[in-house]
Structures are given as C-alpha cells and as structure tokens.
Amino acid sequence: MEIKVLGPGCKKCSKTEKLVQEVIKETGVDATVEKVTDMMEIASYGIFGTPSVIVDNEVKCTGKVPKKDEIKVWLLK
C-alpha cells in the first residue's frame, strides 16, 4: 500500500504524517509513507487544501487533519 501525505510542512501536515505512521504501527499494515512537500507536486494532484492524504492514488481527505479512526478505515479496506 502506498500512502502519500501532502502538505508544505505546516504543523497540521506533520501531525497528519505522525498519525498515519502511528496507525500503520498499530495495525501492522504493510504500507509505505511518502511526504510530499513540493508545491508543484501537491498542485498536480488537483487538491488545494492541505494536509491531504492519498492512499493508492485515491484522495482520502483534504484540508484537515484526519482522525485516527478514519485512517484505520482507509488502511484496512
């Protein structure tokens, strides 16, 4: 599973990344996390609210820090 956390590096973005990492650890899902901070790349995903989480090329959330439960649902599907 390929997870991308998009955000220029504000507080909320790092928090999102941390939460995703925590959920991966807790659930033991096999997944890689990539942090995308480059504005050009972020824009090319067509999202304009950061932080944003993309799981296997599917945009899961934009413009807010997701809750742990939400992340779990995305990862365990």
């Binding site: 504000c10 504005m39 824009a43 067509g46 304009f48 609210g49 950061t50 413009g63």
Partner: peptide, 17 residues
C-alpha cells in the same frame, strides 16, 4: 470557505488553472 493560509498556494493554483 474553510481555508488555512498554509494552503494558499495549492488553492491559488487550483483556482487559476
């Protein structure tokens, strides 16, 4: 519209394009 100034850039690009 919910908007945080740290996403001003992606929003700008999204709007203009």
């Amino acid at each position: 519209t919910p908007f945080c100034s740290c996403s001003a850039v992606p929003l700008f690009i999204g709007f203009v394009t």
